[in-house]
């Protein structure tokens, strides 16, 4: 081999060595990159394991966060609306109970009024007053006293739980009963639970009034065992009894008097005709 040929071989060998070195360096770099990437993959896997939230771009992330905030607001609004509807429902339920109670009270008042004016027979009217006081108010011992304007005395015309003879006649304007007849003001004892029966001092005394004119009184001495106190409805019934009983009693008395007069006149006419 000539010197020139040797130089050429040496130059090639050198070139090869350089290429080989570059290849070795490149391989080293690839290995390093591979190692770096593996490390990143492990890191990401670890991150995903700890926090599975998908990794998003910042734009998507912002949009999603805005959407979540919007949904949270909507949820809060819906919850507020539900709370408002629940409160309205409670108000409606309370109002319903109130109306039902009012309706039931009106039923009692209507029936009491209807019954009081259902007859013109004096005895029947008294019987209806008694029924109302027992069944709708819940009294056990009571009396109806009417005023005799000639003698200015109040005397019992009907009783329940006590006999008529037990009820003393009362002077107009005297004692609790006489004062109620004179003033036309209702009388209620302060504490029913401590009341002891006294025919001159009842637990309740209600005047029977036609406008301001008192024709008699209702006196109550005892309530039914299960009736411990008066309810709001009872006071309304007493007011109704005060007015409607008076007109019913007055009308029935007038009617029976006119019937009596009519039969007397009819008797005279029959005699004259004969």
């Amino acid at each position: 081999m000539s010197t020139e040929e040797e130089k050429a071989v040496s130059s090639r060998a050198e070139e090869f060595m350089q290429v080989f070195k570059k290849g070795a360096e490149f391989t080293q770099e690839l290995l390093k990159e591979n190692e770096r990437l593996r490390y990143q993959v492990i890191q990401l896997q670890e991150k995903l394991r700890v926090d599975p939230e998908p990794v998003l771009s910042s734009t998507e992330d912002i949009q999603l966060r805005e959407r979540i905030a919007e949904l949270e607001r909507e949820k809060e609004e819906i919850l507020n609306r539900i709370r408002q509807v629940e409160k309205e429902n409670q108000d409606f339920a309370a109002r319903y109970v109130e109306i039902e109670t009012e309706n039931n009270n009106l039923a009692n008042l209507y029936i009491a009024s209807y019954q009081l004016h259902s007859t013109l027979d004096f005895k029947e009217v008294l019987q209806i007053i008694i029924e109302i006081i027992i069944n709708l108010i819940g009294a056990e011992e009571f009396a109806i006293l009417l005023l005799d304007e000639k003698t200015s005395e109040l005397t019992a015309v009907a009783t329940e739980g006590v006999s008529r003879e037990e009820i003393p006649a009362v002077r107009y304007g005297k004692g609790i009963i006489g004062t109620v007849a004179k003033t036309g003001e209702n009388y209620f004892i302060d504490d029913i639970s401590t009341y002891k029966r006294d025919f001159l001092s009842p637990m309740v005394c209600i005047p029977l009034k036609i406008k301001d004119h008192v024709i008699g009184v209702i006196v109550i001495y005892a309530l039914l065992l299960q009736k411990k106190s008066f309810a709001e409805l009872d006071y309304e019934l007493f007011t109704l009894l005060a007015g409607h009983s008076a007109t019913a009693i007055f009308s029935s008395k007038l009617y029976s008097e006119s019937e009596r007069k009519l039969s007397t006149i009819q008797g005279f006419i029959d005699l004259l005709i004969k």
Partner: peptide
Amino acid sequence: GAQEDRERAIALGANDYITKPIQAG
């Protein structure tokens, strides 16, 4: 309104026992 009256009525075969004064409700 006494308990013995209620018991007597139930013993005879009544299902319920309501005492006066009465409310429509």
